[in-house]
C-alpha cells in the first residue's frame, strides 16, 4: 500500500516537472493562466468581501505575467506611437494598464461559477497565435479569443477579442479620434483624468 503511494507520488512529481515542456504552446499557456485566475476566484478562503483587495492583488500578479502591456499599447496607438516621446510612452502604457484593470477587475471579481472552455488554437504566424475560448453562462455563450505573441520563449497576450470585437482595435479607433484633433499630451491628460476618477 505504502509502496503504491510512493509510486503515485513519484509519478505525480514527474508529471509536474514535465508540464513546463508543454507550457511552450500558446493554448496551454493561456489555459493555465486562466485556470490560475479561476482558482483564485473560486478559493473559499477568499470568499469574504473583505478579501477583495487580496484577490485583486493576487490577480494582478497573474495577469501582469499574462499580458504584454507594451505590445498592447503599441498596437493600440499604431502609427500614433511615433508621436509620443519615450516619457509619454511609458506614461501611456502605465495609464492604459490602469484603465483596463479598473474596468475589467470588478467584472472578473463578479465571477460566479461560469464555465470557461478553451477549444481552438489558430497559429497566425510562427510567433503569433489566436486562442479561442468561450465563457458558458446559463443564458448564453460569450466567445473570447486571446491573441498571443511569442517573445523570449514566452507566449503573452497582446489583444483580447470579445464577441468579435477586438479590444486593441476598439481603443485604437478611440485614440485615433482623439489624436486626430489633439496632441498626445491632451490624450494623456484625458487618461489621467479617467484613472483618477472614482
Amino acid at each position: 500500500m505504502e509502496k503504491r503511494l510512493t509510486g503515485l507520488v513519484i509519478i505525480l512529481t514527474l508529471l509536474m516537472f514535465s508540464l513546463p515542456v508543454y507550457a511552450g504552446m500558446p493554448m496551454t499557456t493561456a489555459e493555465a493562466t486562466v485556470n490560475k485566475v479561476l482558482n483564485v476566484l473560486r478559493d473559499p478562503k477568499l470568499k469574504s468581501p473583505a478579501s477583495k483587495e487580496i484577490k485583486k492583488e493576487t490577480l494582478r500578479v497573474i495577469y501582469k505575467d499574462m499580458f504584454d502591456e507594451i505590445e498592447f499599447s503599441k498596437r493600440t496607438l499604431a502609427r500614433n506611437w511615433n508621436k509620443l516621446n519615450p516619457t509619454q510612452r511609458a506614461e501611456f502604457v502605465n495609464l492604459f494598464e490602469q484603465i483596463l484593470e479598473k474596468s475589467y477587475a470588478d467584472k472578473i471579481l463578479d465571477y460566479t461559477n461560469e464555465k470557461v472552455v478553451f477549444y481552438k488554437e489558430n497559429m497566425l504566424s510562427d510567433v503569433q497565435a489566436e486562442i479561442q475560448s468561450k465563457i458558458v453562462t446559463a443564458s448564453k455563450e460569450i466567445p473570447i479569443f486571446y491573441r498571443m505573441i511569442l517573445k523570449d520563449g514566452k507566449w503573452r497576450v497582446y489583444d483580447v477579442v470579445v464577441e468579435n470585437v477586438s479590444l486593441v482595435q476598439n481603443y485604437r479607433t478611440q485614440f485615433n479620434d482623439i489624436l486626430a484633433k489633439d496632441t498626445p499630451e491632451k490624450l494623456l491628460e484625458t487618461l489621467r483624468k479617467k484613472v483618477s476618477k472614482n
Partner: peptide
Amino acid sequence: KDAAVDPYVA
C-alpha cells in the same frame, strides 16, 4: 461604457 475613453466612439 466604463472601459471606454470615449464611449460614443467605442
